[in-house]
């Protein structure tokens, strides 16, 4: 899979899904809105690797930036503070 669905600057939402198994999308970020900052290559799917399978097909991985205040409504720091999380493509949806 060489085609990537998202590019830097794209507004995305993390899927608010809670499937069982080994998932590397942190719970706290599911359902949150962010912006893709970078595509960082395609990698074997950890949700498959964790169970001894080959992780194919590889999954595109992105760095996604979120505003702290959007993730934590009671965040006490400046509005400009952010977090950047690595998220696989199948955990992202296009926003708007």
């Amino acid at each position: 899979m060489s085609e990537t669905k998202y590019q830097a600057g794209d507004a995305v939402k993390v899927r608010a899904a809670f499937p069982p198994g080994h998932v590397r999308t942190p719970h706290f970020i599911r359902g949150c809105d962010g912006v893709v900052t970078q595509y960082v290559g395609s990698h074997p799917n950890p949700e498959e690797l964790a169970y001894g399978r080959d992780g194919m097909p590889k999954k595109p991985l992105y760095r996604v930036k979120f505003n702290q205040a959007d993730v934590w409504p009671n965040y006490e720091g400046p509005a400009k503070d952010t977090m950047v999380i690595d998220i696989y493509e199948h955990w992202l949806e296009k926003n708007q």
Partner: peptide, 15 residues
């Protein structure tokens, strides 16, 4: 200082 953005990087995947 508050005029500097604090950016947290969560190393959740392959990097």
């Amino acid at each position: 200082p508050d005029n500097v953005e604090v950016r947290v990087h969560d190393s959740t995947a392959d990097l």
